[in-house]
Amino acid sequence: MSNLALALPARDEQVRELQERIRQLQSTRLDTRALPTHPAIARLLPGGALREGATYSVDRSLTLLMLLLAAPSAAGAWCGVVGVPEFGIEAAAGFGIDLERLVLVPHPGDQWLAATAAIADALGVIVTRPPRQASEASVARLSARLRKRGATMLVLGTWPQSEAMLSLTESAWTGIGDGHGNLQSREVTVTVTSRMGGRPRSARIRLSGTAAQPGPAAPPGSILSA
């Protein structure tokens, strides 16, 4: 019984490694540099981390978005948020995003593409929400620009050329009851669906309410199970 329990993860690991190699061989471009990524999410992502010049889709959740931004920001990257007026900066600071290196463009209006492209020229990580279905040509142009500049884009919503789709589900709160307590911490399931196909991978992560103070704090969130 104990032998089996030990052997199973080892085989899992081997399968994962092999899949990784196949993916690298299939990859259409040269190996790109990795961005610092939250360890729990990095394990789920294709390539084992956020990649420079790549685009990722995030399904609705700003918490997940902040979790992704925190590690690059703490490592010194500049982050830009375009077209997300409801981005809560206090929560962002709580996740360890350095507000001094965070730039917000809440209402780009018609010039969304131009503003995103201009910001992608200078900043390392860009969060954006396309206002409507962007045209194929403009998507291709923006993707080419990101690759050239080595900027990573996180899109709130769907994006035709995204590396992976991330979503946050099954959140369970602690600290709050039926008319008493207050929101304290929660456990969530983060699911990553890769563009290359394959089974979606998910992990259970604990998010605790940290002091809302900017600074290179350890990323709040620990892995419970993968």
């Binding site: 900066i89 730039v103 917000l104 780009p108 010039q111 503003a115």
Partner: peptide
């Protein structure tokens, strides 16, 4: 300097109030 230049360009496109930085 590069970041300042890029953000100033966006300000030129959208207006000064469109590009923000924040603090708690």
């Amino acid at each position: 300097e590069r970041i300042h230049h890029a953000l100033s360009r966006v300000q030129g496109m959208l207006g000064r109030q469109a590009v923000l930085t924040g603090a708690v």
